[in-house]
Structures are given as C-alpha cells and as structure tokens.
Design a binder for these strands. Structure first.
Lengths: 177, 177
DNA sequence: GGCATAGGTGAACACTGTTCAGGTTAGGGT
DNA sequence: ACCCTAACCTGAACAGTGTTCACCTATGCC
C-alpha cells in the first residue's frame, strides 16, 4: 500500500498485526512443533514477556494466526447455490491449510480448542439453512464438511473432490426431499 | 550407599502393560493436558527415566494407551453387511473415545501422528472393498467415516447418528450403482 | 552359583509457557 | 509545553516439560 502516514486517522498501534505476521514467518521456518513463544520473541528481538501485552497467551496467539491465514485465503466469489458455497468454503479452507507449513495442524488445532476459526462453519451452516435444512441438519452438515476438509488436506485433489462429493450427495438426499 | 540401605529408593519392577494401565489411570485423574511422563513416573513411584526402558518416548507411550483403549472397546459381533460393519466400527470408536477422560483427543492425536490406532480404518476400508468399492472409494470412504467419528464424539447420539447416515447415504449412492 | 539383562536411580541438559515488579517511551488533553 | 496515562518492554524468576546419561541392582535362566 502506498499510503503515507496520516496524522488525522488513528495511529493504529499495529504492533499486534506485526507480531502475527512474524509468528507466521516463524511457523514457516521452524514448523508448529518447534514454534514457541520464546522463539518468536527472539525473532522479534524482544523478551518473551513482551508478547503477553498483545496476547493473553500462546493459544490466543495461535488462534490469531489461524484467523489471519483463513482471512488471507478468502476470495470474493459470487455464490449461486448452497452446493457452490460449501464447495467454495472447502476450497478456501484447503488453500489456507496448504498456504503455509503446518497450517493444517494449526487451524484444526485452534478449531478443536474452540478458540477461533469459527467463521467457515458458520458460513456453511447458513448456506444449508438457506437451502431449507432444519437446525440439526445445518449444524451437523456444516460440521461434517468442515471436519472433512480438516482431515483430508493431505489428500490429493482427486481424493479430496471424491470425499466432498460423497458428503454433498448425502446432504442432497436430505435436502431436496 | 555404604553401610545402610537407602531408604528413599526401593526399586519396584513394572511391566509394559502395568505402565500403560497406570498411564490411563493418570489420564483419568488429571486429563491429557496435565498428563506427563514425570507425573506418571511419580504415580508409579519411579524415576521418569525408568519409563524409557519400556517406551522410546512420550509419543510411543501415548500410542500404546490409544491402542489399549481401542482394544478394550472391541466387541465380538457378527457382521452382515458393509454398512453394519462401518456402523459397528463407529460405535466401537465412539465408545472407546468416551470411555475415559480426554480419550478422544488422545486417540485422534495419536492417529494424526500416524503412530497407531490404524486398525479401525483398515477394517472399514476392507468392508468397503468387499462391498465392491474400488481402491479410491474404499480409502476415501474409510477415512471419511473415521474422521467423522473423531470429530463428532462430543455430539449427542442423535447428531452422531444423523451425520453417520449422511455419509453412509453418500457412500451407498456410489456403491450400488 | 554365576551371569545376562530388564529394570531402576539420580542428576543433569536444554527446553517450555507464564508471571511479576519495575523501567521506558509515545500520544492526547489541557 | 507540560504532564499523565497507557502501551510497551525488560530481566529475572517460577514451575514445570521431555529426554539422556553413567551407573547400580534384582530376577530368571543355564
């Protein structure tokens, strides 16, 4: 961005965003298993304790990283059918999880702890609800597709597509009745 | 040391199975997050280093715990159809994952690391192959059902059953064509 | 009875996340 | 221009973690 510093707008202590960006760099360089608060702090040239002014703890920082990766993966596409929406969310998720080293473990782990990465499942549940699914079907179906995406990031494109079609078939059978 | 017998150390010999059983007790009492080699060792009245005569490391021990829990969950039931086999494996998995505190995280984590808990997915893939699925469908289908079971342990019985039926519907559509 | 070895000791290494009292710096309001 | 507040950071410490090492010992087998 070519924006110059404007004194009219908020100074925007964007330290937090810097930390997240750096945290993702550290993830790329060392992997999730070797990612640590201390290593990130060292990489930032800062004491570990400084990180606790931006994040309550490691889990919150990891959640912010996951959300950032999901946000970067968003693509503005016009949605037509509920199936295309589900497919799009899956593709976005898949791309996000493959965009950086260990991003799949990161995102799945954060979601398992219920600390973030909640938006994809909300979007899918909403799409299913719009398609006429009742609450149970929307909730279960969205969770089904989400966890399918989590579990099959490592699969090749053909396997991933096949698995997704199986799930969508099962959902269709319950929606268009 | 010299003349008197050391009062602080009394070697108690254990076997591998004893250690695993105790490890599961510790899991029940403290949860997975607070489970540690040192805590288990203390619970056994043994030095942490003694555990490394039975297991190469923490991961191997956790894998042994997961396998033990899955083994305990096995039930000898006669199988008729591929669907009933898949359902049975799911129920066994679900029961195993609910049988002890944090058993779901344990089993899913161990499986994610590819260190054990590989039998359920093999059984399901074999059932699908017997039903006429090609290699791709058997592999993808088994993984689909397995990860569904992993991801939805926390759901109530109705949600779990609904999700399973959706997946089975999707599979049926591709098998009986 | 001797011996191999499975099992155990206790200390140490190199880490981890987190907390805390206290210092430094930058911006906005008066 | 000043002060004040809040954000930001320091450095040390706490309470753990998994793992390794050299050395010792009890048990079962020939």
């Amino acid at each position: 961005m070519g924006a110059s510093k404007t004194s009219t707008s908020q100074p925007v202590r964007r330290r937090r965003a810097d930390v997240v960006a750096r945290a993702i760099d550290v993830l790329d360089e060392h992997g999730l298993a070797d990612w640590s608060m201390r290593r990130l702090a060292a990489d930032l040239g800062v004491q570990p304790s400084a990180l606790y002014h931006h994040f309550a703890g490691k889990d919150e920082l990891l959640a912010a990283m996951a959300d950032e990766l999901l946000e970067r993966g968003r693509r503005p596409v016009e949605i037509v059918t509920w199936e295309s929406e589900l497919r799009l969310v899956c593709v976005e998720l898949r791309d996000a999880m493959r965009s950086h080293r260990d991003a799949a473990e990161l995102i799945a782990g954060v979601h398992a702890r219920g600390e973030g990465a909640q938006e994809p499942v909300r979007r899918m549940a909403a799409a299913l609800a719009r398609a006429g699914a009742d609450d149970d079907l929307a909730r279960v179906g969205a969770g089904l597709v989400l966890h399918f995406a989590f579990a099959h990031v490592g699969d090749d494109d053909a396997d991933f597509a096949l698995g997704l079609e199986i799930v969508l078939d099962g959902l269709t059978a319950r929606l268009v009745r």
